[in-house]
């Protein structure tokens, strides 16, 4: 913030203004600082983006006469070559993301106590969880691509590959509804992109907490804002999990 506003006014240094208003005027209507207000409404906005994706998913899925069974599609597990563990791997992923979210909540709480060391430790574990989740997702994508799933091709289906079932020839080349692959990669990809962004932001938070600039401000609101974003990523995963793996 290079711009500095020059004003003449009585300003008591010892009486810090409330976080709601630079000059302690009318209090915030919602009793929450503008930074967190912005983050919350941004997340609301982002929730609309994700909802649009998931609602499109629901619409396309319900318009198809047949849809792959998640217990059949998502059954592989790393290091267990021919294992049949339906939903096993994704359960691990979900659990890791929840724990990562918890770690960041703990960091926020330590921030309220001005416990710098606690913030740093818990942020670290939050980042570890996020990176682990991304690794899992990379493995799962890789695995599904090996099984033949593409944004434009879906090997999981009742038809034989290359046969036509619709009224036009050369159509429906893939055994299952092609939308499945597109929606899976599109939506989990968009979520993964959010996780990646969240990890980057959390690293920024970790550095800020470790080097002390947040501590000097006298509050760890930045960690709170980053935390809100990180929990939102977890929240979205709940519904991605619901849409792709459970239903």
């Amino acid at each position: 913030m290079a711009e500095v506003i020059e004003i003449k006014e009585e300003h008591h240094v010892d009486q810090l203004p409330t976080p709601n208003n630079g000059e302690g005027g009318e209090n915030s209507a919602l009793n929450i600082s503008y930074g967190k207000t912005m983050m919350w409404y941004f997340l609301l906005s982002d929730a609309f983006t994700f909802s649009a994706f998931l609602i499109s998913y629901a619409t396309i899925r319900i318009s198809q006469p047949w849809w792959p069974d998640p217990n059949v599609v998502f059954k592989s597990f790393p290091f267990m070559a021919h294992a049949n563990v339906p939903l096993g791997f994704v359960s691990v992923m979900t659990f890791v993301l929840i724990l990562s979210s918890v770690a960041v909540v703990r960091a926020v709480q330590e921030g309220h106590r001005m416990n710098q060391k606690g913030v740093v430790t818990w942020m670290f574990w939050g980042i570890v969880g996020g990176v682990f989740f991304l690794g899992c997702q990379a493995w799962e994508w890789n695995n599904l691509i090996h099984e033949g799933l593409r944004p434009f091709y879906n090997p999981f289906g009742p038809n034989e590959a290359g046969k036509t079932t619709l009224f036009l020839e050369k159509m429906a080349m893939s055994p299952g509804p092609v939308a499945f692959g597109a929606l899976f990669f599109g939506i989990t990809g968009f979520h993964g992109f959010h996780v990646f962004t969240g990890v980057c932001l959390n690293v920024y938070g970790l550095i800020g907490a470790a080097n002390g600039p947040f501590h000097k401000r006298g509050h760890y609101e930045m960690i709170e804002k980053l935390g809100l974003y990180w929990h939102f990523v977890d929240l979205v995963w709940v519904f991605v999990f619901l849409a792709f793996y459970l239903m």
Binding site: A29, L30, N31, I32, W40, S101, V102, V105, V108, E224, G227, L228, H231, F232, D234, L235, V238
Partner: peptide, 16 residues
Amino acid sequence: FIIAEFMHLKYEKRAF
């Protein structure tokens, strides 16, 4: 649970 507890919304003002 995530919104109320982790995101701390339970403790914010009702209008918010």
